[in-house]
Design a protein around this nucleic acid. Structure first.
Length: 495
RNA sequence: UCCCCGAUAGCUCAGUCGGUAGAGCGAGCGGCUGUUAACCGCUAGGUCCAAGGUUCGAGCCCUUGUCGGGGAGCCA
């Protein structure tokens, strides 16, 4: 950004300045060998302290900038050594002024010789819940406000950040437009499960409920009168931005959304949340095959970015959480996702000799056990299943020429299961309206969506990628509640 | 929502046949040490999830509830 001349000047100035005033450094920077010799200020939280009777203490501090800690050497002649430093315990926040040195010990390249250790905040060792070692993920979930200070959740947060960045880059590099679809929607049936209602009717000061029955003498309806509601109609939290994204794709070409999504299902599993983040690309002039290529390319890009940019975090997951994650990611990056039609999949399952709790028959939706068998046992790698029976898929999926199947696809991965669900959209006006009626929906209620087929319709396709499920797959974290900062599940909205 | 399992020290767990409570880690104190999941010794720490029931007697058996975990469904 600057010319070489001025950057040389800057570095001179920096050298001079470092003798006068310490420069703020992150733990990540201080741990690099290049930092040796620098006069710095380091701020973070104490992870552990070890005292040596030789007259100093080791203080490991972490500031979230990387997985590892930096070791601070605090000599006993520091004025607050007995009064404060020797009382430092996990969770205390401190600011260390000192110099970075090459470490004579094993396990780290550098350490910081403290000239001053200022205690910013103490953490009472009797009441602070995080101890030096061994906490279950279940316990940490009960202290979600403190778990960002642990190795595991720090690593998850950095990986999550990397994944999000990677997703944006992948689409931006390909000319996709990032579209913000509404969080509040009036489309009450997008075929994606129960919805949370958004209403101000329960706020008595705004709009007393009994109004409607009194006004008309008719039998008082037990429900609420939504014509009095904020939006003059029932409104909900979105379960998908797809329908709105299609409107932008049919005008801007290549689009994607990335935002929160809500499902009011009473589902209690390690793979479901009531509030989660979803990425939904929507592409005009794209068929199902292009959709599959986009999905495969996206996943591979995410995986290789994480392996490269979060190497230390991934090493941790591979050692402590799931000893296969790195190997699996590398394997997935290097191999082509298999493409198997639903019909082929059913044949494979029928001739597998495997006993399933639910029988496999053409026309039935695949059960979790079937998907798991295919991706984990039969193929042992990610699989894209496509062309599902029309009877088990929503109205917007394009009907194939056979009339029995639709252009749907699911990307299945080992352990997590369905990570992506997508389809080529039905672009033919008459077929779309027929499909809506077939599923008991009134096309008039979707007039703006149907208009996309009435005016300048084009083939288009898209999919939904569950952010948390991708992170689960990458990190090996078994429970989805541990890959989102503040999980929302039935009965759980603390924090 | 359905099925199965669990809840005991701050944390992770053991607790035999129904006879009134144990370990490791953590904490406090002491020792030792360029340490790094440090190590060694001592000490403190309990409404055994809640309510009810059976019993001379319940951490243990029975009932209900709450919370957590796994599986299923819904899906991403």
């Amino acid at each position: 950004m600057n010319n070489p001349q001025s950057s040389a000047t800057d570095s001179n100035a920096q050298t001079q300045e470092s003798e006068l005033r310490p420069s703020p450094l992150s733990v990540a920077e201080a741990r690099r060998a290049e930092a040796v010799g620098r006069h710095i200020v380091l701020k973070g939280w104490v992870r552990t302290r070890r005292d040596s009777k030789a007259g100093f203490s080791f203080i490991e501090i972490n500031d979230g900038s990387c997985f590892g800690n930096v070791q601070v050497i605090a000599d006993s002649h520091l004025p607050n050594y007995e009064s404060e430093i020797k009382r430092l315990s996990p969770g205390c926040s401190i600011a260390v002024t000192g110099s970075v040195k090459a470490s004579p010990g094993k396990g780290q390249a550098t350490e910081v010789q403290a000239a001053e250790v200022a205690v910013l905040g103490t953490a009472d060792v009797e009441s602070y819940p995080l101890q030096k070692k061994g906490h279950s993920l279940e316990f940490l979930r009960t202290i979600a406000h403190l778990r960002p200070r642990t190795n595991t959740f720090g690593a998850v947060a950095r990986v999550r950040n990397c994944v999000c960045n990677s997703i944006h880059q992948y689409f931006q590099e390909r000319g996709f437009i990032y579209v913000h679809t509404p969080v509040i929607t009036a489309s009450d049936c997008e075929g994606a499960g129960a919805m949370f209602q958004v209403t101000t009717l329960l706020d008595k000061q705004r709009s007393p409920l009994p109004k409607a029955p009194e006004a008309e003498n008719a039998t008082p309806a037990p429900g609420l009168d939504f014509s009095l509601d904020f939006f003059n109609r029932p409104a909900y939290l979105t379960v998908s931005g797809q329908l709105e994204a299609e409107t932008f794709a049919c005008g801007l070409g290549k689009t994607y959304t990335f935002g929160p999504t809500f499902r009011a299902e009473n589902s209690n599993t390690p793979r479901h949340l009531a509030e989660f983040w979803m990425i939904e690309p929507e592409v005009a002039f794209c068929d199902l095959y292009g959709d599959m290529e986009l999905a495969e390319g996206l996943l591979k890009r995410i995986f290789s970015d994480v392996l490269e940019k979060c190497a230390e975090d991934m090493q941790f997951f591979n050692e402590r959480i799931d000893k296969t994650v790195i190997e699996i990611l590398q394997h997935v990056i290097g191999s082509q996702f298999l493409r198997v039609s639903y019909t082929e999949a059913v044949d494979i399952l029928n001739s597998s000799g495997q006993k399933f709790e639910f029988p496999t028959a053409w026309g039935n939706d695949l059960q979790a056990e079937h998907e798991r068998y295919l991706t984990e046992k039969h193929f042992g790698q990610p699989v894209i299943l496509y062309d599902y029976p029309r009877t088990i898929k929503p109205f917007y999926m394009r009907v194939n020429d056979d009339g029995r199947t639709v252009r749907a696809m699911d990307v299945l991965v080992p352990k997590v299961g369905e990570i992506i669900g997508g389809s080529q959209r039905e672009e033919r006006l008459d077929v779309l309206e027929a499909r809506m009626r077939e599923q008991g929906l009134d096309p008039a209620g979707y007039w703006w969506y149907v208009d996309l087929r009435r005016y300048g319709t084009v083939p288009h396709a898209g999919f939904g990628l569950g952010l948390e499920r991708v992170i689960q797959f990458i990190t090996g974290m078994a429970n989805i509640r541990d890959v989102i900062p503040f999980p929302r599940t039935p009965g759980n909205a603390e924090f």
